[in-house]
Design a protein around this nucleic acid. Sequence first.
DNA 1: CCAAAAGTGTTTATGATACACCCATGT
DNA 2: ACATGGGTGTATCATAAACACTTTTGG
Lengths: 229, 229
Amino acid sequence: MPYSYDYPRPALTVDCVIFGLDEDGLKVLLIKRGGEPFRGCWAIPGGFVDMDESLEQAARRELEEETGLKSVYLEQLYTFGDPGRDPRGRVVTVAYWALTRVLAEPVRAASDADSAAWFAVDDPPKLAFDHARVLEVAHERLRSKVRYQPVGFELLPRDFTLSQLQQLYEILLDRPIDKRNFRKRVMDLDVLVDTGEVQQDVAHRAAKLYRFDRRRYEQLLRSGVNFEI
Amino acid sequence: MPYSYDYPRPALTVDCVIFGLDEDGLKVLLIKRGGEPFRGCWAIPGGFVDMDESLEQAARRELEEETGLKSVYLEQLYTFGDPGRDPRGRVVTVAYWALTRVLAEPVRAASDADSAAWFAVDDPPKLAFDHARVLEVAHERLRSKVRYQPVGFELLPRDFTLSQLQQLYEILLDRPIDKRNFRKRVMDLDVLVDTGEVQQDVAHRAAKLYRFDRRRYEQLLRSGVNFEI
DNA sequence: CCAAAAGTGTTTATGATACACCCATGT
DNA sequence: ACATGGGTGTATCATAAACACTTTTGG
């Protein structure tokens, strides 16, 4: 092999911080480690990068292997590489993050992990490695991103009410939002389609169901529209 | 060594996209490669991560070795790791970026590189590896960051006039800015100190010189002030 | 006295915020 | 009929944008 490198190399892993939402608030998907080190400890799902796959492919593969979750839109978060972050030696990890619908995606314990479960982001268990820091960085990123991009739709069922959407934003932004102003802004963004359906089985007036129009959103995004909420 | 990893490992490098500014506009610092592959080709400065240094330390070290530049504030940009981005085999690179004053920092050709030089960001030479893409991502990041954080001060001499600052923002944002509105906004941010000095040797009324008050800026940033320009 | 950039306020337009009541449905 | 959340409009305030002339200095 011409010009091959022959240095000692750090090991390379990927980790996936997956946020979800249920009635109680914002959740994060963790796995219980089946092997050493930190056996039995909760951790962010992830694992080693194979030589022939891209970083994102690796993240996607590990996520599915460990939690059963697939087809989420992963975004690169940050690369953590301080010496000493792994007791076994030098390990650099490229962290990804994503949003998903908790209820629509029941997680299963899978091959590499004892079990997987959702935890409140505000009150996570003790985490392996420097994963508490990774989670913190991901949570910051989510909070900052939600302000200027309509990321939240990924956290809701496909069809949702405006009140659900508002609750979501109130959780993410951690402040109450005025109902009329919120609806005005959201409808002005022009990225929701009215499904024509309404909520079922509620003990009050049924709310209209909307759906996020990703196509339209990407169109508007390219044309420079501002999606600040 | 307990629990040691024994997988094939990608090689790990760091790269530093350094932006500067001179009379002609926005510049980027490149080195001419002294070895294969891409010998003689221009590239973003960078190199291998040692086993005992952090990623940022590695970036800082490589930057100084190859260009003589030190003490810049590096920020992590993105990690590029597609298989095939390096002809020698699997190489993952963690890219950093920074802003610096071109004139205050004459670059020298250094050990690992034939030579270093500044190039117009809009018209770079053909670059090694996927460095054209890396530069593109860095440029996007700069443009998006400059909108809500006063990053630009790093590109100017320590003492500068409001017109210089405005020119800088016009270059970065690529649009003309109204002089009175710009001055109003900038002075309202309350992060400039009047040095009491004025420009020397200009063939017109001498402008006042200001200095960026980083201490004050970080204070305000923590207290949640918005620095949108 | 001319050229060249520095410096300075006010008006207008736009978008953000605050705010309260009636409606539809299930029990 | 009542409890529960769904749905709607307007007035006010704050911030952003548009805009033109006088001042200083060196040549």
